[in-house]
Amino acid sequence: MNMTRRHFLVLLPAAALAWENILAGAPETATNYHTSEHWWGMLVDIEKCIGCGSCVRACQKENNVPDGYYRTWIERYRIKEVNGVETLEVDSPDGGMNGFPSSNEPGVKEFFVPKMCNHCADSPCTQVCPVGATFVTPDGVVLVDEKYCLGCRYCIQACPYGCRFLHPQKNVAQKCTLCYHRITQGLTTACCENCPTGARQLADLKNPKDPIHEFLRTHSVQVLKPHLATGAKLFYNGLDGAVR
């Protein structure tokens, strides 16, 4: 299945229109974007991820992520199995931003897992925010209001996936915005735009033409920590049971 191509066809007219408006200096009128018509998620195909770090770098540049903190990162899992006993090694040097050194160890199961905010429908982080400074938008994106956040860090504690951090200068919680400034203008996220293998695909679950529906129907797709029932919308294809 050629997702990128189909995706591209879906997004193209809206994006072209958006770009014209951006050039005209009026991003707010870029598209007739209605929050009620979208429900955003993402598909990550572990079998396609090569751990190049393009997504991490793109995210840092697009969103001015402070050094040492990550809105998205890549983990490398290395699973050794001896007599039915698994040992697990995981690393993520600089969030996988500069790729990974090869281990070249034979007999080890190795793979990369890109991580980011799961944009949970029943998000435990927004649940605990005392003031409504972090919230799920009507189109299913979990955002932080920088001008309203107290910096109490309760949301950081409540996120099971380690996706949030306190911005060291702004002293407010920060996280992946699913490039809300891009997707509301018909563009895809910076990480998806820059993934060379199409391992990441932005998905609009309310758009019947989005290839995500076909993919979900025909693949065994899993989310992270499903037992926590967070309503995660970051769908993984080929997710190993060892991944936490």
């Binding site: 951006i22 991003p27 707010e28 929050t35 793109a58 540049k61 697009e62 969103n63 409504g132 400074a133 972090t134 919230f135 799920v136 938008t137 009507p138 955002l143 209001d145 920088e146 001008k147 309203y148 915005t177 809300y180 400034h181 891009r182 509301t184 203008q185 563009l187 910076a190 735009e193 820059n194």
Partner: peptide, 18 residues
């Protein structure tokens, strides 16, 4: 919802690099 509606506009206004 239980948040500042203007926050959406502010977040949308972030400049694009790619």
């Amino acid at each position: 919802g239980h948040f500042r509606g203007d926050a959406l506009t502010e977040i949308k206004a972030q400049p694009i690099s790619y």
